[in-house]
Design a protein around this nucleic acid. Sequence first.
DNA 1: AAACTATTCAATAAACTCATTGAATAGATT
DNA 2: AATCTATTCAATGAGTTTATTGAATAGTTT
Lengths: 223, 223
Amino acid sequence: MNKRAFKDSVYGELAKVTKAMSNPHRLEIIDLLAQGPFSVEDIANNTGMPIANASQHLQHLKAAKLVRITRNGNFMLYSLAGENVYQAWASLRELGMVYNNAVEKVVTDFRKGYGEMETVDIDTLAKLIEQNEVILLDVRPQEEYNRGHIHHAMSIPIATLEQQLKQLPKNKTFIAYCRGPFCVYADEAVALLHREGFQAKRMDGGFPDWMLKGLPITRVDKI
Amino acid sequence: MNKRAFKDSVYGELAKVTKAMSNPHRLEIIDLLAQGPFSVEDIANNTGMPIANASQHLQHLKAAKLVRITRNGNFMLYSLAGENVYQAWASLRELGMVYNNAVEKVVTDFRKGYGEMETVDIDTLAKLIEQNEVILLDVRPQEEYNRGHIHHAMSIPIATLEQQLKQLPKNKTFIAYCRGPFCVYADEAVALLHREGFQAKRMDGGFPDWMLKGLPITRVDKI
DNA sequence: AAACTATTCAATAAACTCATTGAATAGATT
DNA sequence: AATCTATTCAATGAGTTTATTGAATAGTTT
């Protein structure tokens, strides 16, 4: 093999990975799977696409070895092939946010719809939790909390927050987090809490970003 | 804007970045530009493609804001838009090497053509240099050395190594480095040195990987 | 101002990618 | 063994992406 053939082959193989990531739906799937394993149907529902399409995109991701499959009864459970996959996606997301201000503009504009709100970055939050200064709310669906959540966080899925308001102390500060920077469950939670007179902020990034930093987590399910 | 429109828009924007990276030639260009600015012609020559194609691919990269342009006389100089770009590419490269063993196989197989050789990882090397244990050879073309090289490295472009052999001490260990893990200048250098009875190893990764770690570098050119 | 030169543009055809169907499959449950 | 169910497959057409040309352009140099 000559040098050119070698390079064609190396960059060709690597392009298979980037090609697998070069589609909006597949990026959304990767972002979702960072929470843990999901069935094809759940993936389709969460991303608003037909099941056949979701399946097709998952085949792409599988071919590029970005996802893994296990079976659970009738369901095929897809999950990320490893931490590196989220790492790479986070890197790309970062890149997109920094140099392409279109992304950042869309995000900040949309967030404004939930009213002004403070955010807390992950490292600061880690200290606040140690000092018992805040109450941490995981507002993702219950199953995602069960698969893994920030140490000391309490699970209040956004859908149930309204009913649970009365049990929350009025004199504490709440920090809400969810799936990631493009998930708005935490924004919805903070907006609702504000309306009801609570002190609340949103965590920057989501659970996978916390985990990537090696900060303490808890698991409930045994998977 | 509703949630779905928001997500479509965010993931759509981010997919523009990944799409820009989803082509073998463009990956090779990014890898090359990690050494510094290059003209369209140089890029075309280094990657073995027609100038018009190189230009076309560069337009893609520019549209995704992955590269920047400056003019120098008649030449347009393209360079990476920032360190994040290399960061993301390194992340993807890592991902490709870990989960898709096709890439790693191609690389190790091709390297075998240069004979058995030891490699030294970047962190180990940093210590060896401090302790004055080795002589570090930058075997990239002279201009790339001038734009930036590892502190204390001497420039011996691979094309000139053979003539300079007589001036090299026989009782030292040489470490050669070049552009990156897919560049074989360093392998060629080590193979040649071995043939002539010198002790030599290759550095893992290339100059950009050293730089990404924030290790000490020197610049000669004022750009 | 004319000539030059590096780069970009524009048009084309071939090769891919994607969404949309509806049928097929593999495995679990009855 | 028959039924059920989640997922995959296969075929189609519309829309992109790419390599290949050769012409056009925008600056620089003379």
